[in-house]
Simulated assay, not measured.
Amino acid sequence: MKIAVIIARFQTPYLHEGHKQLIDTVSKDYAKLIILLGVSPVMGSRKNPYDYHTREKMIKREYPDVVVLPVSDHPSDRVWSDNLDNLLKSVFPNGQFYLFGSRDSFIPYYTGHFETVELPAHGDYNATELRKQYADKVFDSNDFRAGILYAYYNQYTKVYPTVDVAMFRNNKTELLLGKKANSNTWRFIGGFADPEDESYEAAAQRELFEECGELQVSNMIYETSHRVNDWRYRNEADKIITLLFSCDHLAGEPAANDDIIDVAWFKIENLAQMIADGLINDEHTKMMKLIITKYLKN
């Protein structure tokens, strides 16, 4: 039995005309059509927002006779190809398979045993642009609201990495701290790591410069990490873990910027009393005690 196999992702909110033309063109000359949907190991990303079951239902609604199967991504092209071949043979042991894809599809990476067929593009359709068109649309329907719940509940719980900086001066006898507008307590300078940061050390330096101005500092040295009881996430499954770095101030005058409204230098020997007096942010107390223990001069 000659079986056509389309290998694609169909990561769109609906089957557009390009999808339909592809399915109709391929299926008309074959006894059976299988659509293999690529499954990413990342749950709920911008590039792969829809899980397998959501895409399967979308296809089966308009093409109920099509066989839809998942094929998981793999870092090895050879292993991925073997898994694909084994999946097809397990479903149709006597099938003669022909694998269809576009010019930018799986074909260059496939090393399996079945024949591949490159198809011309079916119209000027771009899945990324189509997702962007719907990314900020809000619909007043129960299905839309239920879909939001489904998306959030079918994600891994996340850890958001932040960085904090203990910047010293005067032979590590003084420490720079900052204060935010929504708090009367002092805290380390810091913030969230960004996907564009090359490292957590780079993120720490970026945050320091954003909140205190362009300074000359020594290299960032890792001190410790721990989960922060951030008020924004206390009732959430997702949490924050921060990484504390230290550096020495070499030149430049720190000035409060961004969401920091004030900065000041404090002697290490006075920090313990500041903690006792409630002047240090609760989220940073544990790290502050480590700094005191490590750097307080006896």
Rank of each mutant, 00 (worst) to 15 (best):
R61N: 11
D140P: 02
Y125T: 09
K239T: 15
Y160M: 15
W80A: 13
V117W: 02
L119T: 15
D282H: 09
K137Q: 11
E198Y: 12
N142A: 15
V91E: 09
L208N: 10
E198L: 14
N270T: 11
D197E: 05
N235W: 04
N281Q: 13
I292H: 01
G147M: 04
P49G: 04
I261D: 11
S105I: 13
D136P: 00
H113K: 15
S199C: 08
L99Q: 06
M43P: 01
V26K: 01
T162C: 11
V91A: 02
K289R: 13
A31Q: 08
E17N: 15
E207R: 14
E253N: 05
A135V: 02
Y63L: 04
I221Q: 07
L87C: 12
L279S: 10
Y156L: 14
K172C: 01
P195G: 04
R9P: 02
H226S: 10
A276M: 05
W265V: 00
V263S: 06
P195R: 08
I148M: 10
D259S: 04
D262R: 09
T111C: 09
N270W: 00
D65F: 09
V217I: 14
E196I: 12
I7V: 15
F106G: 06
F10S: 03
Y200W: 13
N270A: 02
Y50E: 04
E207P: 01
F100V: 08
R145G: 04
V42F: 09
K137G: 02
G252V: 10
Y30N: 08
I7P: 03
L69T: 05
R234M: 12
Y52I: 00
T293G: 06
D164T: 10
N184L: 03
K179C: 01
N235K: 10
I107H: 06
S199P: 05
L176W: 04
K60N: 04
F10V: 14
A135W: 00
A135Y: 00
T173Y: 00
A204P: 05
K32P: 01
Y110N: 12
I23W: 05
Y50K: 05
P75Q: 13
D136M: 03
T162S: 13
A4S: 09
P254V: 01
Y233R: 12
K294R: 15
L119E: 10
V117C: 09
W80H: 14
G190Q: 10
I280D: 02
S183D: 07
W265K: 03
A251V: 02
Q96P: 00
G278K: 03
V5R: 04
F139L: 15
L243M: 08
H19M: 11
A276C: 06
L33A: 01
S105T: 13
